[in-house]
């Protein structure tokens, strides 16, 4: 088991170490992940129902659905 895990680790580590053209692609993926999770998610896309209990969410959406039907 220990040998298998080590072999898997070495496989990935060697792969990343020996990358040539793949390196800028990983840079791009990292840049995108930072933008997605540290900029977009934190500052622009806060889930409207976050922090509410299941019951509060049901209540919130039911009010929205009823309110919008009267618009």
């Amino acid at each position: 088991m220990k040998y298998t895990l080590r072999a898997i680790y070495n496989f990935y580590a060697d792969g990343f170490r020996n990358m040539t053209w793949g390196r800028p692609l990983w840079g791009l993926i990292l840049l995108k992940a930072i933008f997605l999770f540290l900029v977009l998610r934190l500052f622009f896309f806060k889930p409207v129902l976050a922090g509410k209990s299941e019951e509060q969410r049901s209540e919130h959406v039911s009010k929205e659905l009823i309110y919008k039907s009267n618009q």
């Binding site: 896309f45 889930p47 409207v48 969410r57 049901s58 959406v61």
Partner: peptide, 12 residues
């Protein structure tokens, strides 16, 4: 992300 923020009624 958009589902949770812009389309929360739908998502629920």
């Amino acid at each position: 992300f958009e589902f949770g923020t812009n389309w929360s009624n739908y998502s629920w």
